[in-house]
Nucleic acid binder design. Sequence first.
DNA 1: GTCTATATGCAGATAGAC
DNA 2: GTCTATCTGCATATAGAC
Lengths: 200, 200
Amino acid sequence: MGSDSTKEKIVQAAKQIFLRKGMDGARMQEIADEAGINKAMLHYYFHSKDQLFDEVFYGILSQLIPGLISIFKSDKPFLDKIEAFVTEYDTYMSRNPFLPQFVFREINRDPDQLSRFMSDRGLNFELVEGMINREVSNGNIRPITFPHLFANLIGMIVMPYIGRPLFQRKLFKNDPIEYDRFLLERRSVITQFVKQALGA
Amino acid sequence: MGSDSTKEKIVQAAKQIFLRKGMDGARMQEIADEAGINKAMLHYYFHSKDQLFDEVFYGILSQLIPGLISIFKSDKPFLDKIEAFVTEYDTYMSRNPFLPQFVFREINRDPDQLSRFMSDRGLNFELVEGMINREVSNGNIRPITFPHLFANLIGMIVMPYIGRPLFQRKLFKNDPIEYDRFLLERRSVITQFVKQALGA
DNA sequence: GTCTATATGCAGATAGAC
DNA sequence: GTCTATCTGCATATAGAC
């Protein structure tokens, strides 16, 4: 009942609303309602909407990115890392379906801040990049540069989530059960697709 | 100087602003400035912001989608159609870099209207879907369903555009020239990637 | 810490002169 | 058709009682 609990409730509520509506679309009133408190309380704990947003957004990233990078630090064979990456990322999104659109929207809003945030925490891709280059040199996979492989992977993983409202309607007769099945299938489909593209 | 010219100037200006900011982020004042006219004029030609937005948005789609579908109606070999699709889509986006984020953002805003729009104009995917199923049956490509292949393709094509602000900074030392080169490369990289994944 | 009530500012939309 | 000036409503933010 103390301050911690309320602040936490606010953050949780804000996460829901921001994920669904993005920074521009979200209303402070809506967040207050979701948290079951008054609008004024938001400004008591967070001076501005901007500040609240940053708290939520970077909280999510702090949780997500290190987990993804750590996958590549394991000692599995490379293609198994890909599989783990796809599964991990996809699982996280199945629990937060609005995440990708939210992230990419804000990538475009303030890229400098985001880039700084990652640099400050040592979140960069050199390690993974080196790993892929080595796999190519050793002839374990077909030639491809890291940026291309990265864009391919993220694109395939993320697309069914950001396109869902349209895809579900046009490709699955607007049946959400079927679409969820489709999403689940994608983990193995993407993994297979990549493995075949990179050559076994 | 007549009404046609002004209306056209408004539509062009609105296109620029909406593509960059989306429906929520765009300001009528900004559109008026871009068009070099007064804010009141926007409401003279278009009753509301919503109406202006729809005009722009569906104008773009009317131009884009039929071209993409028509590619699959040609009599090229299937994998060449894929190549043509990637090139065509990518070329369009290199001229309108903000398009994908804009489209996916609005897919989530009013999916029913968009779905109806496509149905009204007979813009659906059955033709392409049947084509792919036949290719699979004939053993020309490895087994894959249309929704999966579609999501893979669109995802890979679109990702470097919606992720550009971050990707360019973290993967290309924020060098726009290098990033443009990367974008250009992707046409052949994606085509190769897909061809290998589907098996030749 | 939590509330009600209010201030402030801005964006979409309209009125009306020219 | 085009403008200036203004209305209206809403969202963020604050003041102040409890």
